[in-house]
C-alpha cells in the first residue's frame, strides 16, 4: 500500500521518454499503472523514477491503413473493445479486451503495458499472437518491429531491450477469418487460468488455415502448431476437434504452469476443452 520514495516525470514526447529511460537504470514507464502500481504498493517493484507516458496522444490512436490495423500502445482495453475498426479487423481482440479484469481495469490498463508486462495470465498476448501481430518498438537507436512469435520470451519477459518502448501493435485484416478468444477466468482476479484464441480461414465448411494460441496455462502465450495442422484442411468436425485438442495439450506440455487451485494438468486439459470452445465460438456454432 505504501511504495518507496520515487521520482516522477511526465514525459513530453516519446523521444524524451526514451531518453530518460536509457539514462536511468531504475526508471520505469508508467502507462495505465494497473500492473506496475499494485507491485509498487506491495514494494515488489521499487523503481527510482516513473516516466509517465499515459497522456501521449500519438500512442492512443487506433487506425486502419491499407489492410492493416494499427493500435497505439496506450490504447486502453475499453477503447479497443469499443473500437469499430478492431471489431471488424480483429474481432477476437475486441472481445478479449472486453473481458479483461473488470470495467475499472479496462478503463486504465493499456495494450502496450499489458504486452510489455507479459503476465502469463494476461489475455491480449494470446490474441495478438494468434493474429500474427507485429509489435513496433522504439529505442535510442531507432525503431524496429518484432513478430509476436518472437516477442514473448518467458514469464514476465519479452524481447524489449532496456530503454525501449512499445509504440504500436499492428495486425493484418482478419475480417474474412472466423476468430474467437475464450477464457476460463480466475474467480478472484479474473485473469486467465486458460485462454485460447483461434483464427480460422474458411472455404465453405473447410478450414483452409488455422492459427491457435494458448495463454494462462503457459509461462507465455504460445502457438500450437499441432492443432493448427490438424485443423487446417479439416471440416472442423468432432474428430478434428478432438485431435486438435490432443495436439494442443501436447504442444503446451513444456510451457505449463500451475498453482494450488489450478494445477498444471488441469490447465493442460482445459486448453483442449477451450480450444474446442474457441472454434465453436469462432464459427458461431
Amino acid at each position: 500500500m505504501y511504495p518507496t520514495e520515487i521520482d516522477y516525470h511526465r514525459a513530453s514526447s516519446i523521444a524524451e521518454a526514451i531518453e530518460l529511460l536509457s539514462q536511468n537504470d531504475d526508471a520505469k514507464l508508467l502507462a495505465g499503472g494497473h500492473s506496475l502500481i499494485p507491485a509498487m504498493k506491495l514494494r515488489l517493484a521499487q523503481p527510482g523514477l516513473l516516466i509517465d507516458i499515459s497522456h501521449l496522444e500519438e500512442l492512443k490512436s487506433i487506425f486502419v491503413s491499407g489492410d492493416k490495423i494499427s493500435i497505439g500502445a496506450l490504447a486502453t482495453h475499453a477503447q479497443i473493445a469499443a473500437s469499430a475498426d478492431v471489431q471488424s479487423y480483429a474481432p477476437a481482440l475486441a472481445s478479449a479486451a472486453g473481458i479483461v479484469g473488470d470495467q475499472q481495469v479496462r478503463n486504465w490498463g493499456t495494450i502496450g503495458g499489458n504486452l510489455a508486462h507479459a503476465d502469463p495470465a494476461s489475455d491480449p498476448p494470446t490474441v495478438v499472437l494468434a493474429y500474427d501481430g507485429v509489435i513496433h518498438i522504439q529505442g535510442q537507436s531507432g525503431s524496429r518491429s518484432v513478430n509476436a512469435q518472437d516477442f514473448f520470451v518467458d514469464l514476465f519477459a519479452t524481447a524489449l531491450e532496456p530503454g525501449e518502448i512499445i509504440t504500436r501493435i499492428e495486425l493484418s485484416n482478419s475480417s474474412s477469418a472466423k476468430s474467437a478468444y475464450v477464457k476460463l477466468s480466475h474467480p478472484a482476479s479474473r485473469y486467465a487460468v486458460v485462454g485460447v484464441c483461434a483464427v480460422l480461414e474458411m472455404n465453405g465448411s473447410t478450414c483452409t488455415s488455422a492459427r491457435v494460441a494458448v495463454g494462462g496455462a503457459t509461462m507465455k502465450a504460445v502457438r500450437s502448431p499441432g492443432a493448427e495442422s490438424v485443423l487446417t484442411g479439416s471440416s472442423l468436425d468432432d474428430s478434428a476437434l478432438n485431435a486438435a485438442a490432443a495436439a494442443v495439450k501436447s504442444d503446451i506440455e513444456e510451457f505449463l504452469i500451475g498453482d494450488m487451485s489450478y494445477p498444471e494438468d488441469y490447465r493442460q486439459a482445459m486448453a483442449g476443452v477451450y480450444l474446442k470452445r474457441a472454434v465453436h465460438a469462432a464459427l458461431g456454432s
Partner: peptide, 11 residues
C-alpha cells in the same frame, strides 16, 4: 498464508 490477497482469495 498462500491466499494472502484478493487476487487469490476468491470473494
Amino acid at each position: 498464508l498462500i491466499t494472502g490477497s484478493l487476487m487469490d482469495y476468491a470473494l
